[in-house]
């Protein structure tokens, strides 16, 4: 099944892990037209942790979906590594998603009929790969799900479901992880754990993480913060701290 080499062979140094060039995304047409992305140029450097911030409706989720090849762009080009995914066949795109990407959705993340551990290992099951048990154990421990593994999503709290989703995105050790508000539903303690874990994925396991968040302190864990407003990247910040990010956010809408 697997035609692409698994995550053990990333080629991170060659260039950005993901890149968007002149990306436009509009929904609807005529009067009802919404410009969710309005000419975005963005690069995500490999083995870096990027946070995306912006007001509600600014296009953060849309950007993530387009970058991950889950949705098509209206115009512009998306590269994953050096592959242009805007021209890729559905099949190749699926392969790419399966082998190189992890995604944590903002909402509705889990297959309701499978229990937590089955959800976590599902991407590997779909790819026909054997999960790396040690890694899975570590992921599960970090997100604090040891005693909840055989529960169905309906038997888990919103935060627990979110943690399962994060664990699933990381379980197959993808090159690139997109996480849409992974800590949105978490208390601050488990939020910190999840963020620490994403950090660890970047520092120790050479993964690239892109995360959407509304929380300045969460963003402070990242190497870089991008600010999005009305579908445009309006600012960015390196080595963010909670205060600096909060400062910048106050200026939104000005």
């Amino acid at each position: 099944m697997t035609t692409t080499a698994p995550s053990s062979a990333p080629a991170p140094t060659a260039g950005p892990a993901a890149r968007g060039v002149g990306v436009y995304k509009t929904y609807g047409s005529g009067e009802a037209e919404v410009r969710a992305l309005d000419g975005v140029d963005v690069e995500f450097a490999p083995q870096r942790f990027t946070a995306i911030m912006g007001p509600s409706g600014s296009g953060k989720s849309t950007l993530m979906h387009c970058m991950a090849g889950l949705d098509d762009v209206t115009s512009g080009t998306i590269y994953l590594g050096d592959v242009d995914i805007t021209g890729l066949s559905e099949k190749k795109l699926t392969m790419l998603r399966r082998d190189r990407l992890g995604f944590v959705f903002q909402a509705y993340n889990l297959v309701p009929t499978l229990n937590a551990i089955e959800n976590i290992t599902l991407p590997m099951a779909l790819a026909g790969r054997d999960p790396d048990q040690e890694w899975i154990d570590q992921v599960v421990r970090t997100v604090g799900l040891d005693d909840r593994l055989t529960h169905r999503p309906s038997e888990l709290s919103g935060g627990q479901q979110q943690r399962v989703a994060v664990a699933r995105a990381l379980a197959s050790q993808p090159d690139l992880v997109f996480a849409d508000e992974p800590t949105g539903n978490l208390d601050s303690k488990s939020g910190i754990q999840v963020l620490g874990f994403l950090r660890q994925a970047v520092d120790e396991f050479d993964q690239t993480v892109v995360m959407v968040t509304h929380d300045p302190n969460a963003a402070a864990n990242a190497d870089r913060v991008l600010f999005l407003e009305d579908g445009k990247i309006v600012d960015e910040m390196s080595e963010p701290t909670g205060e600096k990010v909060l400062e910048r956010m106050k200026r939104f809408g000005d």
Binding site: K91, T94, R97, D99, Y108, V111, L122, L126
Partner: peptide
């Protein structure tokens, strides 16, 4: 629909 789409999003191909 959502469940199927989720499967697709996390790597299931159409055939699956």
């Amino acid at each position: 629909t959502r469940e199927m789409a989720l499967l697709r999003a996390i790597g299931a191909d159409r055939r699956q």
